[in-house]
Design a protein around this nucleic acid. Structure first.
Lengths: 114, 114
DNA sequence: CAGCATCCAGCAGGATACTG
DNA sequence: CAGTATCCTGCTGGATGCTG
């Protein structure tokens, strides 16, 4: 899921892409944002992701220090996720991507009239 | 290669991730930067990418308006690529990702002494 | 040189069932 | 509820050879 060749690169940019350069992770980080959120919420908010893949992505994000996982010893279990300082610092970048897309996408898209 | 479900999303951010959210495209855009570059150069500069995948990625980037392809009618053929305005506008974002990684990666990495 | 066509292996990722 | 385990399929992407 994570490309080890990227993560072992001696180029820091390549390593960064190895960490967050796939389709799910930016989505997950963006959905979490500044809140604390439970596994089930993420699963229902993010369309089309399977629980298995969500689990894997969350684990990698935790390993890479982008988010914190809080598991409560309860039954039924409760697990909460929130972004770490590193993860929070990535939010403005996602914001820039949004703005970039809004600015340039429209020009080349077929316009819909609602 | 491009996830159609992402590109057809009604969320502009999700569409953006559908466009550039994979490991090769940010690398390619970063390598091209502000210069004009030939196919063979890209192939040799970018480690580990196959010619087939490079071709596919370049085609998608062109379709999404991120880069311009200039094919000279010569023999042997010469094809040059350069970023469009949209592509150039993405460079600062990549720069932010570099800085973000440099700032936060180190803390969690085993330090090497050279 | 810059691709495209073809073939093929490996793995991503979906579905389902089970557990603490 | 929040996972883990297992199975299975399809697609990604590598290797190779051909062409204008």
């Amino acid at each position: 899921m994570r490309d080890e060749r990227f993560c072992n690169s001696n180029c820091p940019f390549t390593r960064a892409i190895g960490t967050i350069g796939n389709k799910w992770k930016p989505i997950i980080i963006n959905v979490i944002g500044t809140r604390t959120i439970r596994f089930g919420q993420l699963d229902s908010i993010i369309p089309l992701i399977s629980r298995k893949v969500l689990t894997e992505q969350l684990k990698e994000l935790e390993e890479d220090g982008l988010l914190e996982r809080l598991a409560y010893k309860e039954l039924p279990p409760r697990v909460e996720y929130k972004l770490s300082e590193k993860g929070l610092a990535f939010l403005p970048i996602l914001e820039n991507i949004k703005e970039w897309n809004l600015k340039y996408e429209v020009a080349s898209m077929p316009q819909e009239i609602d």
